[in-house]
């Protein structure tokens, strides 16, 4: 096994960058594949081997890898969230948290007026979004040139975005459009209290899953 020259490494990076690989995980795995293959072949064969690898990891193959990884990680995050939400599996502490959640649900429905629930809801949105964006900054890239991002982080941030948009449409919009009149409707108030509690529980599970995700290992 030989050591790769800086020119060979440059060739690989140039090729991989031209593929606009979306996720760091895919970039790193393909990069390692290129390097290991070249390390096991004589330097003189490098251009031929690289050309073969370029055919193997063609644009469509890489895009499919990005897509498949996204689907699989999304599934993994959902399973982790559901596992976390099974409070009966967390022992006495889990049971206590479960009962506390139930109590919060009842308090929300019967004590807090809808106008104040909206504030709690908005605060929970802001806190969740801020917390997750802070923990998962590696999912964001404000660079004008393409940069791969972490798939797991991006999946979590997408879920926050979907949840908040959904809640905004089913709660905030009707309230704004009816200038608050809809809040006097008891059914609407109960529905919204339920939605708030569920969104808070969902957000907590996302924060826990996000904090357990592996840290970004390497960015090219």
């Amino acid at each position: 096994m030989r050591k790769l020259s800086s020119q060979e490494l440059e060739w690989i990076h140039t090729r991989l960058k031209s593929l606009y690989i979306r996720y760091t995980e895919v970039y790193e795995e393909i990069f390692d594949h290129y390097c290991t293959t070249l390390e096991n072949t004589p330097a003189i064969d490098s251009p031929v081997i690289i050309a073969k690898l370029n055919e193997t990891f063609a644009w469509s193959v890489v895009k499919n890898m990005d897509k498949e990884l996204e689907t699989n990680v999304s599934k993994q995050v959902l399973v982790a969230q559901l596992d976390y939400l099974k409070f009966w599996n967390h022992g006495i502490k889990g049971l206590l948290i479960g009962f506390a959640g139930f109590a919060v649900l009842n308090i929300s429905i019967f004590i807090i007026p809808p106008s104040e629930l909206i504030i709690i809801f908005l605060l929970s949105i802001i806190c969740t979004a801020a917390g997750i964006f802070f923990m998962k900054r590696d999912a964001l890239s404000f660079s004008l040139t393409h940069k791969s991002v972490s798939v797991s982080s991006l999946t979590v941030i997408k879920k926050v975005g979907i949840l908040n948009t959904l809640m905004m449409w089913i709660w905030v919009m009707p309230t704004v459009l009816t200038r608050g009149d809809i809040q006097s409707n008891k059914l609407f108030a109960i529905g919204m209290a339920l939605a708030t509690v569920l969104s808070i529980i969902y957000s907590i599970s996302l924060i826990v899953v996000a904090s357990n995700l592996p840290k970004k290992s390497h960015v090219q």
């Binding site: 895919v26 795995e29 393909i30 594949h33 193997t56 990891f57 063609a58 193959v61 499919n64 890898m65 498949e68 990884l69 699989n72 993994q76």
Partner: peptide, 12 residues
């Protein structure tokens, strides 16, 4: 490789 890596990710 185009089939291997997605299969590994799916099993994971």
């Amino acid at each position: 490789e185009g089939a291997l890596y997605p299969a590994l990710h799916k099993l994971e």
